[in-house]
């Protein structure tokens, strides 16, 4: 899923400062799962902002709404009336959702309330980790199912750097060294010899380096 984190209230207050009446629009999919922008977070943020603005002596009117997904027009459409009633939209979706909402409502300022951070997994309750950089050419088969492009701080293709220590990454002792994991996993599978092979430079054309990407499924186009 896409993982995000709500922006600090102070930053949000500055962003919404020009508006007296706005809509906080939540998203019920990824950012709900990571506690950044679902229904509950919309309600919490709304109360925090109401309180802060009352303290400032500049009360605001905040409407709350959460749609299933802000990255799909059919769901965004459900917000049309609420959007039209307000001066601006504070979207708690990922960056894609924020943009999709902005595209649908060209006359409303749409502001981001969440920092979209990565594509990751819920490792255990409350811990999310980055596991994919969306490179567009998945090489997990080469690396024993552990992605060095998203999980190694140096994107190394041919083994760990000299700083790998006790399974941790030199860049952050709280982060596992991806290469340690790759070696561990391939050893367990009895396939360590797989790492003897030279991995040539990655072709980054399928990644963002090649420009913004697009997926067209002709069989689904109507």
């Amino acid at each position: 899923m896409i993982v995000g984190e709500q922006k600090p209230v102070q930053e949000i207050l500055q962003m919404v400062a020009p508006h007296r009446k706005f809509l906080i629009l939540g998203c019920g999919t990824c950012v709900k799962t990571c506690f950044a922008g679902g229904e509950d977070e919309v309600a919490l943020l709304a109360s925090a902002l109401r309180l802060a603005s009352r303290k400032d002596g500049r009360p605001v009117e905040i409407e709350e709404l959460t749609v299933e997904r802000q990255c799909e027009d059919a769901f965004i459409a459900e917000a049309a009336e609420a959007v039209s009633r307000n001066e601006a939209v504070l979207s708690l979706a990922c960056g894609a959702g924020v943009q999709a909402v902005a595209r649908r409502f060209p006359r409303s300022p749409v502001l981001p309330g969440v920092n979209t951070t990565f594509l990751g997994v819920l490792e255990h309750q409350g811990l999310f980790t980055e596991e994919c950089a969306g490179c567009g050419d998945c090489q997990l088969a080469v690396f024993g199912g552990v992605c060095p492009f998203s999980r190694c701080a140096k994107k190394l293709l041919n083994g760990p750097c000299g700083g790998s220590q006790e399974g941790k990454c030199e860049v952050d002792p709280d982060t596992e060294c991806a290469w340690h994991l790759i070696i561990e996993r391939l050893s367990a599978l009895g396939r360590l010899d797989q790492l003897r092979a030279y991995v040539p430079p990655k072709n980054w054309q399928t990644s963002l380096s090649g420009g913004p990407r697009k997926l067209i499924r002709k069989d689904h186009v109507i």
């Binding site: 083994g159 790998s164 220590q165 399974g167 060294c177 360590l192 790492l195 003897r196």
Partner: peptide, 14 residues
Amino acid sequence: FADPFEYRVIRLAK
């Protein structure tokens, strides 16, 4: 001296 020790020689060979 870096870990994992057994892998260091494979890396040298590469």
